[in-house]
Amino acid sequence: MMTWLLLAAGLVLLIVGADLLVKGAARLAASFGIPTLVIGLTVVAFGTSAPELAVSVKAAFAGEAELAIANVVGSNIANILLILGASAVILPLAISRQLIRQDVPIMVALSALVMWLVQDGSLDKIEAAVLAVGLLAYTWFLFWQGKKQGVECIDEEVEEMLHQPHPAWQSALFVVAGLALLVYGSGLLVDSAVQLASAWGVSEAVIGLTIVAVGTSMPEMVTSIVAAIKGERDIAVGNVVGSNIFNILCVLGLSGLASPMPLLAGEQLAGIDIPVMVAVAALCVPLFFVGAVLHRIEGAMFLVLYVAYTWYLVAVALQKPYLAQLQDGILYGLVPLVIAYVLVSLAWDFRKKRQSA
């Protein structure tokens, strides 16, 4: 019970710390005359990945190098299947043209790049540096694109944050307090995750893919679900896709550079979980393309896929006797149904477009 309480406390500290860090850094940047566009593309974007980054860096320094990658992989899977699924069930989600043409393909390509980089079972400093350079390039591209399109502000969140002036000392205090909470919270979370893994007889990667991943994705979950409830349906999707891109480039890149050892990807992580991350990202391409809407039935399908994936992870970790039947049910039952649904949806959309032409 105490371990669970410490884990929950770690999650709360991470979420509060990330919020304080983003607010303090955004207001400090504004006080130095930095444009709102730059603040939105850097401070706010990095802030959404702050919990994952803190946990992955702490895990790497604690010698739990596999937990660092598992946290990112699990978060990206949960972001799409759990968060987008739940948001779409609440209200069908609109998909912007930019997401379909630009951001989703980037997310798929980066997911595939991670799968290729860790095929040898690790992510070394050179490979992490490639991702970190990609982070700089992607951030510069977003800034250039925003300036070209004449965008003055990324979203209402940034405007709201900067609406009222705050003294510099208060903003600096927010930054220091946020960093302190992130460091302390990540320590509690990683230590609790390792203790749970030992108590249950499973690997730290399994805990990272499930409990830790969902916990560090809580800010994205709250943002997306609130956006869906408020009718801001495109924000819900853009938040998830942007978070997944930053998780790969920022969290894996920076934690890999900061880690004293290569980040590890065990046999299951490299052979099953990362390919699942790639497949889930790729699934977004046809579903987002059809009608530029993620419908309730597709949201429900995402949730079913997430339950099946989590169930499979637990069954493998605990060596349940029904594992073979569960695996067959997913591979020969659920997956073909999803593929059939995608193909029928594409054919129906193609037919509608031909009739309206």
Rank of each mutant, 00 (worst) to 15 (best):
L323F: 00
V89P: 02
Q268N: 13
L318E: 15
V130P: 00
A228T: 09
V335Q: 01
A172N: 06
A109R: 00
A132I: 06
A54I: 07
A29V: 02
T210E: 12
S122W: 03
Q119T: 11
L287H: 04
P260C: 13
A45E: 10
A60H: 03
L162A: 04
A197K: 05
K147W: 05
I339R: 07
G185C: 11
W140I: 13
A112L: 13
L123R: 06
R27I: 02
L37K: 04
F46T: 05
L294Y: 00
D155R: 05
A347M: 07
L117A: 11
I126F: 12
I248Y: 08
P262R: 13
V344L: 14
E232R: 08
A112Y: 03
A109M: 07
A172W: 02
L181H: 01
M107Y: 04
A29M: 07
G208E: 10
M161L: 13
L179M: 13
E204Y: 01
A8E: 04
V222N: 05
F174A: 06
I339C: 10
W4S: 14
S203F: 03
Q319D: 15
C284T: 11
L318V: 11
A199H: 09
A236H: 04
P167S: 14
V240K: 06
M218I: 15
I229F: 11
M221Q: 11
M1R: 14
M2Q: 15
L334G: 02
L28M: 15
T3M: 10
L173S: 07
I90P: 01
T48S: 12
E159T: 10
V12M: 12
T36L: 06
V344A: 14
I80W: 03
R296D: 07
F46Y: 11
Q327A: 13
L14P: 02
G329I: 03
A282E: 02
G150V: 03
V237E: 10
E66Q: 10
G33W: 02
L28T: 11
D273M: 09
F302A: 15
R296G: 01
F350Q: 14
A112G: 12
P260Q: 15
L254R: 06
H295K: 12
T42R: 08
V175Y: 02
W311V: 09
K352A: 12
L84C: 09
G150Q: 10
S243H: 02
W169F: 03
D120V: 01
A18Y: 07
